[in-house]
Amino acid sequence: MKPPPFSYHDPSSVGEVISLLGSLENPKLLAGGQSLMPMLNMRYVMPDHVIDLNKVDGLSYINDEGGAISIGGMTRQRDLEYSDVIKAKCPLMHDALLQVGHRQTRNRGTIGGSLSHLDPAAELPAVCAAHDAVIVVQGPNGERDIPFADFPVAYMTPATEMDELLIGVKIQAWAEGHGYAFVEFARRHGDFAITSAAALLEVGSDGGITRASLTVGGVGAAPVRMNEIEQALIGQFGDEEKLRELCEACREIDALGDVYASSEYRQHLATVLSRRALVKAYDRATGKA
């Protein structure tokens, strides 16, 4: 299990990366390496060129301008986990990060790497889906924004072109005091989730839900937003039985099945975890948790 031969490039600017992407045959971008390196060691990928992004300037940052949060593509998961901005403004991401891999992998893994790899069971894409994040990519013709809903185009395939680099993520914070919960079921701590649910809720002073986002991860090729449930949640009061009833819609998701979990089991988990995420988010929004 040793990497195959390749040429190594370590550009220092985004411009250089893009020109390398445009000129090299069969290149592969190396971010935190927590997914690419195992695939190289197992020779599941055989690139002719590895372009290392770790020396590229200006891709690691977490900024907050009045709730408009922007995150650099090479920002490490650990930096996000320990960020006060993320904890305060995007607590769903903090909740999710505690369930991402292990401390060693979070020390190296980056948000841009996770989003580009786009494992259907990964936590950060689900958070981006829940938050309607905007993915910023740069190519030879400059930057463009891709709404996260349009970002996954197929199984583990992002909408970036061959000569484009994911340089950042933009997330709009929800109202202060909003409810959030990232709930997943994995066989062991730190494993990729078999299924996950991410919930965001804003609750009015009367206790009624005024805004809702519910995302299910690990079931399809990409995280699934449960739009119908979200609409039905508006005006609800967090009654668990009512939430249970609404979440039954998750059984209709077109879910993957494999030797570890059947599609029925994933649909069932989606139903259960969605309810649990909503209950937890509602309790947080109303100060009960």
């Binding site: 197992m42 066989r187 062991r188 701590h189 730190g190 494993d191 990729f192 570890y260």
Partner: peptide, 13 residues
Amino acid sequence: TNFAEYLLVSAPE
């Protein structure tokens, strides 16, 4: 055929 598919018990479990 790898440790993501074949699960060994880890400390939290």
